[in-house]
Amino acid sequence: MPSPVFSWNLLYDFQLMWSYPFMVNAFRAGAIVAVVAGAVGWFMVLRQQTFAGHTLSVVAFPGAALATLAGFSLSLGYFGFCVAAALVLAAMRRGREPGGSEESAATGVVQAFLLACGYLFMALYKGLLEGPQALLFGSFTGITTGQVTTLALAGLAVLLVLAAVGRPLLFASVDPQVAAARGVPVRGLSIAFLVLLGVATAEAAQITGALLVFALMVLPAATAQVLTARPGLSLLLTAVLGFTVTWAGLVAGFYWNYPLGFFVTSFAFGLFLLAHGARFAARAVERHRAASGAGPSSSGPAALAGGAA
């Protein structure tokens, strides 16, 4: 690709980029992946299952490698491995309190083994494999319109399921005991969420590669949760942030010949740092105001003393 020059006139830049059909498809696919990965990732971050999420995204790599080696469709490799790994993780969580951290070692075992399998499959396949780079970091060039349609349908399915189970899933994630007492199928939702995570990962990893999809899952969600504690707003913000960094990454990747994944991840990481900085500053201002303003907001012991019998 000849390196075009970024002009700061965004209208002109987008006109130029969108004159290439592969870029149009890249932007479409990026938008879909960002929103779907963000929504699923928001729950993943809230449930503190980032390690499970990372494992599932890494598993996409041996899946793709095996599909290439054995000569069946790449999609089948991605979906098969991610969903199977999700079920294995769910089975290993069985009998444990949801949200516990004890499963991390077992999750790590699965991840290490499957990653090693991926390298084996690659070593066995000595032919035309592009090497691990494409599988891990993806390639946004060369996405067909058919792929975008498949991506959109799979993404829509994931979002619909998430919308249907979202509220009980949130309840089960934050407060599993009370949710269970209220009749929410906490264990079933836990399994369903892992499978959903697997499907979303498999779907997105085909475009973004195994590692970038994890970045898109964790970074916008973590940033949004730093910025607001309102669940609805936080979820919306996650989608917006994911969308923004992906498109910004695509623009940067088009004009500067460095890996797309680096741009997307760096932008997302930059926003994450900014969000933390903003929260820190807000707290400092609040503390300063409380210290100077004779603190009428005493919500602690003073309010409680009245009830003592």
Partner: peptide, 18 residues
């Protein structure tokens, strides 16, 4: 990062689907 009011709200309709 969930507010107290959201946790209370879950007691009201957190078990509903959709």
């Amino acid at each position: 990062r969930i507010r107290g009011v959201d946790v209370v709200r879950m007691g009201l309709d957190g078990d509903r689907w959709g």
